[in-house]
Amino acid sequence: MKKVILFSVLLAAMSCGSGNQSNDAVIGGDSSTVDTASSNSVVLPQDAVEGIVKTIPSPIETSVIIKKAGGEYNKAILNPTENSKNYSSSFKKALNLGVYGADLGYINIYEKNKESLYYLQSVKELADGLNIGQFFDFETIKRMAGSSKNADSLLNITTDNFNQINDYLFQKNRSDQSVLILLGGWIEGLNIMCETAIKSKNPKLYEKIGEQKIVIDQLVLVISSFESDANIRELSMGMKEMQKIFEKVEITYTYKESKMEIVDGIPTIVDKSESKVNISESQVLEIAKITKDLRDKIVK
């Protein structure tokens, strides 16, 4: 069953068109060609990687879910901004750009605009270090951060900046860095979610953690593609360990035909299908532990 799902994901990811030959390990360079030569890893063409990257939910969603579930703002669980000067390699810069991006989203959702300035500074440092700082107009963003009235706009602008960075990195055949930014952001978002869920014992948040099983399968697929890099290989091994824990989580899906209504002039799908997640508290604790271990390695 797992093989079928994996194959379906590959097909879906590769349906976006012809690929660029960004990775030497891709046999023949045809976008439909997949190299499975290295152990347990699949090297995907760049178009397929981009397709999967676009599939992964934004950490902004995680932060909104936490806030709506009554989670209190907790600065202590974020990566301190002073750490940004410790990241010297491109690998660490990209990963922690994702981490700070997720932290910034969390801060913006809680409308801590002044706090967001410090995190924007860290984002700027790391983005400049990766030569992608041009996508942030920090002076304008700083001015906006001065007023809580601008919280929505600030969130939209920083989201747009990260989207532009993602497009740029793919254009420049730097998809590995795009994947690292994505991964850093996802792990940070999951860590914030786990910390909040354990503290509040909120079953809604447990369920949201369990749903990440769908996401981690995509992430493992995409990160495995870059295992020729020793740093990424180590990270990929950690992700595969995490995936094994998620395998114990059960998600069931029941399809029922949906209804359509026009709401405020827009066709709106009223869903009748449903999904259910079966996850125990001990599984949540296990996921939280491995997430924290992986996250601590990233931010140290």
């Binding site: 998600i251 899906y253 827009i266 066709p267 799908i269 869903d271 999904s275």
Partner: peptide, 21 residues
């Protein structure tokens, strides 16, 4: 696209009840 009325809308909204791809 509303086939019955041959009308294009600029947006589509979805109230999701099932997490998934």
């Amino acid at each position: 696209y509303d086939e019955a009325n041959k009308r294009h809308y600029y947006a589509l909204a979805y109230n999701c009840k099932a997490t998934g791809m």
